[in-house]
Amino acid sequence: MKINKPKELVVISGKGGTGKTSITAALAQCFSTKVLADCDVDAADLHLLMKVKSYKEYPFIAGHIAQINEEKCQNCGLCATLCRFDAITQTDNLYKISKQSCEGCKVCVDACPNKAIEWIESQTGVWKETYTEQGLMFHARLFPGAENSGKLVSHVREKAKQYAVSNQIPLILVDGPPGIGCPVIASVTGASAVLIVTEPTPSGHHDLERILTLTKHFRIPAYVIINKADLSDEFCTRIQETSEQFNSIIVGKIPYSPLFTEAQLLGKSILEVFPESNESKTIKSITNVMSHKMELQISRND
C-alpha cells in the first residue's frame, strides 16, 4: 500500500520543561520506522539525545527586512510615523531601523518619498538534515531574536513530510515547542494527533487547559501524559477532570524520576540506559496505545 499521507504525531506541552524532549527521544526508540522532526526551533535539544552520524546544513531565508540608506534619506520621518512595530527611531538626527524589531512588512519601503529604504533578503536561521541511529531527523536553528519562527517550523515539517512520502515512511514524530503561540500553531495544524506532556502542578494544569483549548480549536485529537505524576495527587485528579472535559485520554503516568536526567547526561534516551525501568515500560505502553489510536501500520521495537 502506498503511503501518500504519513501520520504525524506532535509532542507538545504548553508549559516548558515538563519533559517533552526526553519523552520524544524515548518514543523514537520504540517506533521502528519513522522520520524525526524537532520543531522547537529556537531551543532545539532533541539532537543531544541522538547519536549523530552526519548532517547537512542549509540557510533559511524567510523574508526581508528594511534598511535605511543614509545617503538618500532626507530625514522626513514618515517611515517612523508609519511603522507599527516601533522599529524606526531617530538618534543624532539619523533615522535607523532596528533589525530586531523590524517585522518585514515593507510599509516603509513603499512609502518613502525618497526611495531611501532598501529591502534586503534576510536569513533568519538554518535548517538541518541529520543522520542519526534513529533514522533521519530534520531540525533547525532560528538565529537568536529572529522573526518568522512559525515559517521555519512549517519548513522543517514540510521537509520531514517530503522525505517520509518519498521513502514510504508511515510516521513523523515531532518534538514541538512550548507555549500556545505562533510556533506551536505552526507545529500542530494538520497533524494526525498531539501528545501533551504535562505535570501535576498549578502551572502544568493551567497550561494544559490552554493547550487543549488550542488543539480543540484546530480539531486535532489530543492525548495526555502526566510526567512527575507522584508530585501531587490533587493536581493529577484535576488534570484527569480537565482532560475528560476535552475528551482527551491520559495515556500514561510517569513518576518524578532522576533517571531521565541521568540518561540525558550520557546523551542518551532513558530506554537505552534503563530499558528495564518502570519509566521505560510506561513509555513502551504509550507507544502501543498511540500506534493503535493512530492506526499505524508499522512494527514496533519491543
Binding site: Q100, P144, P177, P183
Partner: peptide, 26 residues
C-alpha cells in the same frame, strides 16, 4: 522561554537580565 521574537520583546530595553537554567545538557 526560548530565544525568538517573544523573548526579545520581553527582555529588550531591560537594564539587567537574570538567565535561569538547570545543570543538564539541555
Amino acid at each position: 522561554p526560548g530565544t525568538a521574537c517573544t523573548f526579545v520583546a520581553a527582555v529588550e530595553d531591560s537594564d539587567f537580565v537574570f538567565l535561569v537554567t538547570e545543570a543538564t545538557p539541555f
